[in-house]
Nucleic acid binder design. Structure first.
Lengths: 171, 171
DNA sequence: TATTGTTATACTCTATAACTATA
DNA sequence: TATAGTTATAGAGTATAACAATA
């Protein structure tokens, strides 16, 4: 059976066994088969590494990548409504509620009912929210540097460009 | 404040507003600020797209990327023990238990107690498990093709290589 | 009727701690 | 004592369905 895997790999112009030792793959002697040749697999590992490093970088500030993104988007679009933020974050509007509750409870974000349409909550950063975000951005910048320290700037830019091209149109 | 973001972007040699319209970013007119210039953000979006396409590709077979990976590794390492599979999959050994329960309940995988050390379960694919995995691999190959249809083969290979280089040594 | 925010609920994925049976 | 597998439990993160207020 593993010759079948090898055959598949040969056809694709990759070699999984070789990959396994070249690849950042674990040194525990387990054969990962075709996994290292799969985009989805590499993406999952890379994201795991990135999230873990992000958490280290922000440390005691206790802001997840998702919450950081929300702060950035609110700052860039003061007064936007929850449903707009949900769409920008690719989240259901019900999913956003507890996240905003958290940000509001920490005094970083304000919901303010619209005067024109009283169904709507506009979202603003508070002054402490703006201040914290400034610090967060500095840490995130350092995190990005650390992450990509094995890549040249042009490789990093190319990586981002390649990633951005993968998305199916629908998403 | 958004001029600050722009300044950051300028310093980094990227332009987030331009990115936002070039990037597969949403057409809902919300400014994503510096997010599109961040590796972690692009990685998250790319992984979302990949997982969704993976699910479509495997459809009624109802096998997640994680379960697929386990089947591949068990096939490549017949008889490996649970703790080895957990390590290869970057999971706690307790996390593996319900996943294997599922695979065993579906008749795809067998746990067999070792004769040498009765604490150990060796893992094997069943005959139906091997047969299903063959089908899964075909679907995954098509999924990978579909995913990367905007990239040339060399771009795809380069993307995988760049991703593999991001990992911090520790992981 | 449709939209906005909310609640209740549930599902997936993951981890930690404590247990058991072995070694 | 240490290891392998298991259980109980909990915490993110996410979604769907139904609701109240408002348009």
């Amino acid at each position: 059976m593993s010759n079948k895997v090898a055959a598949d790999s040969r056809r694709r112009g990759t070699r999984s066994a070789a990959n396994a030792s070249v690849n950042g793959s674990p040194g525990h002697g387990i054969d990962l088969g075709l996994l290292p040749s799969l985009l989805g697999y590499q993406l999952r590992l890379a994201q795991r590494a990135v999230f873990s490093d992000f958490a280290d970088a922000l440390g005691e500030l206790e802001v997840s990548p998702g919450l950081f993104g929300m702060l950035v988007v609110i700052e860039a679009n003061p007064g936007l409504k929850q449903s707009q933020l949900a769409k920008a974050a690719h989240l259901d509007r019900s999913t956003l509620v507890p996240a905003l509750d958290k940000l509001e409870a920490r005094g970083l974000v304000m919901r303010r009912a619209s005067e024109h349409d009283r169904r709507v909550n506009g979202l603003w950063l508070t002054e402490p929210g703006t201040a914290l975000l400034k610090t967060l951005k500095q840490r995130v910048a350092r995190h990005e540097q650390r992450l990509a320290h094995r890549l040249s700037r042009s490789e990093r830019n190319q990586l981002i460009a390649l990633l951005a091209r993968i998305f199916p149109d629908r998403r």
